[in-house]
Design a protein around this nucleic acid. Structure first.
Lengths: 351, 351
DNA sequence: GTGAAAGCGCTAACAG
DNA sequence: CTGTTAGCGCTTTCAC
């Protein structure tokens, strides 16, 4: 909300057509114009059409700001995608694009607009600024970013809020996400079924979603009597560097592995790139399973076996959960189903 | 602008704190609160701090809608990414994510908010709705989508508008883009330098940007005395299917080629995927050059040789051009430089 | 320094 | 059916 310069657009806005102009031109009062434009049945058929035509020909459109003020209404929703202030890159994962598209569609369908912002993960407490100032009726935040407490604080303040992420204990805010534990389980089971035993885990386990996927991974290993080797768990970011970092870390540790379960397709892909540089064949020497099922997964080489998150449903679920809150309803968290998509990167055989 | 249901948030908005509340609590008039909150020097130092603290502790924030109405100002910009109504997918190219991120950053830097919408390419005439209704002070549209006339019409109406795309004759609207002709030339020259002679062109040449890249391609061929073979020019979409379509089309035509210049990295990548399925080696049998230089280009296999568009500069240029118009200045179109990034997909040797 | 009052562009009683 | 009037939450002369 820093105001840079005086670029307030005062000049341009000043000369815009308004209801009074239409009224004068049509020879009626603004009340009648208002009624006509809002399709009130109270207004005479022919005056209505006359007004409508006049407005259309002049491209007049009701000033939403004034209308909102008068009606105490608002149909815009804030969408926030946080970024790590240390790198300031975040819009780097194609999964987010798909999510944004899905949210835009879901909002449009319901007649809402989207105010989009990035925000530093260190200033998530300020996420409600747009709500406090009446700019938006609620906020959809993509990812928890390890800011559980701040999010709880927002919810405690009754800021309408839905977060894409993982269900956590002591969670006051509404959270929509996919079934991460099951996703981790599916991926790991598949790898085990391919005969792999030394399965590495790539993901930032300080974050809730990767942590739950890790739990699924551990459960699957346990079920098959395979010991969890902590040296196979490597923490890496969701940035494109993630996979490279992780492969390098494993090499530095000198541990052996024959498979990787990566917490995003992006990590999986960059990991595969690193493995290729190291001369390790995927999937023969190292089988890789990703997460998300972004578009690229289906034409990457090798085609990525991955856990699909239902992105279309996700956008709708997030929006619905938010609107429910706004209308005073309960903020129901939801967990969407995940599903394994078998392609080539983890070996050819289906489970 | 279709209103679905009555989810207007009337209920929630109703009980929000407002300036009068702060005034009452502080024992002053709203005028004083307004002055204090706006850092007017007219207000007494201690009353000011008292009011500021009160407001902060109550998380009160000035209602922007009312403020905007009173001040006739507005600091939000509309960003539109059109989609093809036949497929309704459009947020499918990672290049767009990068662009969106760049725009978000540039707007934030200048203290503006972004209202993001998708819109059908068939309803671009409606793109100004958010401007006409005073929702935004101007519009940034990503891509021309073959709607030159509609865009000209908007500009003729004096809607503040900047389009990411190609400079065209008889262009009334402000347009920022990269140097497409040079980009096409660079890519093609590189391919020729690698000894390729049968260079296919992949891109929707009905669109201005691909058309200009094609011109650069033709120029480069001409300079080297290579005849342009129209059968090597294949029109394909910017969707992920693009590359697949194009490779299939060429196969159907039965024409031979040893190189591809693709109008986006996405097309290049999916084309490579198809070529691989056909058993044709990249770059040995077919050298491929892409366009955009998205993140993935550097870790795709083979690493993509591509024409870089300066995305960071693009966002800033688009925003600056728009704000200049809003402030009543001239709408200066701009062409950003393009640059060839040599990696592996077109052969190893630099030009 | 501070308050009273008018008005930004619109809508909704309330009269007629 | 239509116009008059008041007021949404804020800012800003103009008095005091």
């Amino acid at each position: 909300m820093s105001k840079a310069g005086h670029t307030g657009s005062n000049e341009a806005a000043r000369q815009r057509l308004q209801m009074a102009d239409i009224a004068r031109l049509a020879g009626v009062s603004t009340a009648t114009v208002s009624r006509a434009l809002n399709n009130s049945p109270l207004v005479n058929q022919e005056t209505r059409t006359r007004i409508l035509e006049l407005a259309a020909s002049l491209k007049y459109s009701i000033n939403i700001g004034a209308q909102n003020l008068r009606l105490k209404q608002n149909r815009t929703v804030g969408v926030l995608i946080p970024f790590d202030p240390r790198t300031h890159q975040s819009l780097t994962d194609p999964f987010l694009l798909a999510m944004l598209g899905s949210l835009a569609d879901a909002l449009t369908e319901r007649g809402f607009d989207m105010l989009f912002s990035r925000i530093g993960t260190d200033e998530i407490g300020l996420a409600a600024a747009s709500y406090d100032s009446g700019r938006v009726i609620g906020i959809i935040m993509v990812g928890q970013w390890g800011r559980h407490q701040e999010l709880n604080a927002l919810a405690a303040r009754k800021v309408p809020l839905v977060v894409w992420g993982a269900q956590l204990p002591q969670q006051l805010y509404c959270c929509v996400g996919s079934d991460n534990v099951n996703g981790g389980r599916l991926a790991t089971e598949h790898l085990i079924a391919q005969g792999r035993r030394r399965i590495a885990f790539f993901g930032d386990s300080a974050l809730p979603e990767p942590a739950q996927r890790y739990r699924g991974y551990c459960e699957a290993l346990a079920r098959h009597g395979i010991a969890v080797d902590p040296r196979l768990q490597v923490s890496c970011s969701f940035l494109p560097e993630g996979g490279h970092e992780a492969v390098a870390a494993l090499a530095a540790r000198g541990v052996d592995y024959d498979a990787v379960f990566a917490c995003s397709d992006l990590i999986a892909m960059t990991a595969i790139d690193s493995l290729r540089s190291l001369g390790r064949h995927v999937p023969d020497e190292v089988a890789v399973v990703g997460y998300d099922d972004i578009d690229q997964a289906s034409w990457f080489h090798p085609r990525l076996t991955t856990v699909r998150q239902p992105i279309g449903a996700a956008g709708r679920a997030l929006v619905d959960a938010l609107l429910a809150q706004v209308e005073g309803g309960a903020a129901l968290s939801a967990e969407l189903p995940t599903e394994l998509v078998i392609r080539a990167s983890a070996g050819e055989t289906a489970t």
